[in-house]
């Protein structure tokens, strides 16, 4: 899996004296986590296919500070934020797209007070726009046609920012059989990773949150659990494993589904 991706960096663009249309904010998970890196690559393939003029910060990108803020460390958050904002502003960034709802929320909602004002989109919103603008063509006759797919709403995309429909629109364009869990959209259950839980053991209880959420999903008897967040992806993948269902149910990001449907 090493067909070359076109991934220009902001530094390269600046050297060439041009301003890309959008900045793709990869995020820490998307950069380092083995599972999330696949999502990053899938999204870049879509960007390449649609000839989107984009760039990444590459080694100049640093954690948004989302986890630090939610763990209660406002100092660390603001240091991260201010450092990132200095770089983003130096490059004159106006539009940001990210595949991580946590980065999306932080960049969109929490950076403005610290001097970072950008138009921020989640990758599902951006891809949806690409399709609507005719820049990306997805036919209904895909490998996923008729497959039962349920969408798990990431808290930081859904409740936190009221984005419920963009990912679903994308799934519909694939001609899939979209089935909703009982708890969906506003009442969707968290995967268990938010608020810095991803980085610690859960408190004592009688069940893990990701297992409960996987049970929600399993009620819909899906072939695929789709989501739009690298953390949710990890949690749901682990949940499916805990239920020993990995042979029947795969957990995929919406971007991966779109990319696969196009044989990218």
């Amino acid at each position: 899996m090493s067909e070359t991706l076109k991934v220009p960096t902001m530094a390269e663009c600046a050297a060439e004296g041009r301003q890309p249309e959008i900045l793709f904010w990869v995020g820490s998970a998307g950069s380092y986590d083995d599972r999330a890196k696949k999502i990053t690559r899938a999204f870049v393939k879509i960007l390449n296919k649609a000839n989107v003029d984009f760039a990444v910060l590459g080694t100049e990108e640093s954690c948004t500070g989302d986890v630090a803020k939610r763990a209660g460390n406002e100092f660390l958050f603001q240091m991260q934020a201010i450092t990132n904002i200095e770089i983003l502003n130096a490059y004159g960034v106006k539009r940001i797209v990210t595949a991580c709802p946590h980065s999306y929320n932080t960049l969109k909602n929490e950076y403005p007070q610290l001097g970072g004002n950008y138009q921020v989109q989640h990758h599902t919103q951006f891809i949806d726009e690409l399709i609507k603008d005719g820049r990306l063509k997805v036919g209904q006759e895909t490998t996923f046609k008729g497959k039962r797919i349920t969408f798990h709403d990431p808290c930081y995309l859904g409740r936190a920012n009221d984005v419920y429909e963009a990912p679903r629109e994308l799934l519909r364009t694939l001609g899939v059989d979209l089935v909703e869990m009982k708890r969906n959209r506003k009442t969707a259950l968290c995967c268990g990773a938010g608020g810095a839980q991803m980085f610690k053991e859960p408190e004592k209880g009688d069940k893990d949150i990701n297992v409960l959420r996987t049970e929600d999903a399993m009620e819909t008897q899906p072939n695929i659990i789709a989501t739009g967040c690298p953390y949710c992806n990890t949690m749901m993948t682990d949940g499916v494993k805990a239920k020993e269902k990995e042979a029947e149910i795969s957990v995929l990001d919406v971007a991966e589904l779109i990319a696969k449907a196009q044989n990218l």
Partner: peptide, 23 residues
């Protein structure tokens, strides 16, 4: 996790210089 962010800009102990390796 927070020490990692302070030292290498990510919640995991990876080198910031490796951020683009996924490419």
């Amino acid at each position: 996790m927070m020490t990692n962010i302070e030292n290498n800009g990510a919640p995991w102990p990876y080198n910031q210089m490796d951020r683009l390796n996924w490419k």
